[in-house]
Amino acid sequence: MTKPRQTYLDPPPIDPAQITASADLRYILIDSLKTLLQQTNHTLIIPPKPTLDPETFLNNLKTHPKIYQASLSRQFAGDFPPDIEQTTLKDEPKDWYIKTADFGDECDRVLQHRDGEYTQLLEDLQEYHQILQQGWDRIIVLRPPNYGRYDTLINAAMQCLGYSPSQFQYIIIQPIKLYAFHKPSKQLQAIPDLPPNELMQAISPEALRWYCFSTPLTKVAPINLSTVGQLQSNDTFALVEFIYQRCLTLVQQGKNEGINPSMSWDDLKNLTWESTHAVKLLDLVEATPQVLAESSRELAPHLICSHLESFSQICQPWLEGLSLTHQNFQLLSKMEQTMLDLLKILGIQR
């Protein structure tokens, strides 16, 4: 058995009781992310708060190849003669920089200003470095968008220290954005934010979770209030719900008729299937562990939503005129259970 990975999950510093805008509701769905990690062999832990000593930490970093002292960052110094630091700026006070530009940041960042003041970046680096050095495998930090582009900066800085994205992820979760169809213009229009209680009257908690997770966490989550729950409007969650309920109904019907889901997975895979849709559904069931693993690795629940959409889109034509044979019942049972497990991970109870 694979040893569980010890993961430090640092959630957004938001008190759900203080949420006043529906745009912020996305940040409090942290329970589903915890479930996703726990379902994929992660043990979530809260390590003791490190004792910070930025002076000692920086002194230990000063010989690191990604740390340097200069009056100008490399980006600005590049506009001047190569010997500018040894000539014109020789007697100028210097800052300590980290080469975050090597890992996608727009410029190198200061760790200690020339007046001796340490930056928040240095303190954060020391905290995360100490946690990983204490034996934990992974840190995932989640923050709301008022943290600006700090995700790019801190992720790059941690890579400077030798940590890979699989060991450290700092993710800024983007908000919900509401839309509605404007009849006079016949166009979809962005609408002002609603208080959370008003939004919850227009959309179910399950649908809210779906739309929050069906878009990558690093992108704004759009919700079209005009089509929520409408199957005829190609609403993705409505289709997933419809297909799951249809499968559940057929499975219950089969059980009432005395059919049992007794077939092993290998036997089910080795059967001859006349329907190409059935073959594709079997492939989707088999691919589910890989989808979960990737979703956990990237902290990307939208991959689970996409997987459920694929189930629903392929299952819909397969169910048309489906006869409830013993063979079809085995696949229906497997599909119903797989979809239910994925919906539970998203926090959507059926």
Results as ranks from 00 to 15, higher is better:
172 I>Q: 01
242 F>K: 15
233 S>H: 08
177 K>S: 06
207 A>D: 12
209 R>I: 10
207 A>S: 14
194 L>K: 13
249 T>A: 14
175 P>Y: 05
239 L>F: 06
222 P>G: 07
218 T>C: 04
200 M>K: 13
220 V>Y: 02
193 D>H: 04
191 I>M: 07
169 Q>H: 06
216 P>Y: 01
185 S>V: 02
183 K>C: 00
248 L>Y: 11
212 C>T: 14
170 Y>I: 01
164 S>A: 13
226 S>C: 07
235 D>W: 00
237 F>D: 05
222 P>E: 06
210 W>N: 11
230 Q>P: 04
240 V>Y: 00
181 F>W: 09
238 A>H: 04
239 L>S: 09
251 V>E: 14
192 P>C: 06
225 L>S: 05
199 L>A: 13
170 Y>M: 08
200 M>R: 12
163 Y>S: 00
211 Y>V: 02
216 P>F: 00
247 C>K: 07
195 P>C: 08
189 Q>L: 15
243 I>H: 06
225 L>W: 03
222 P>H: 04
179 Y>L: 08
242 F>D: 15
201 Q>L: 10
220 V>A: 06
171 I>V: 13
248 L>Q: 15
182 H>L: 09
168 F>T: 00
190 A>N: 12
163 Y>L: 08
240 V>A: 10
208 L>Q: 01
250 L>S: 11
177 K>N: 06
251 V>P: 09
228 V>T: 12
174 Q>W: 02
224 N>F: 03
163 Y>W: 13
187 Q>K: 14
210 W>D: 03
171 I>Q: 11
161 L>I: 15
181 F>T: 15
174 Q>M: 06
196 P>W: 07
236 T>L: 12
161 L>Y: 13
228 V>N: 12
224 N>Y: 04
163 Y>G: 10
208 L>R: 04
236 T>I: 11
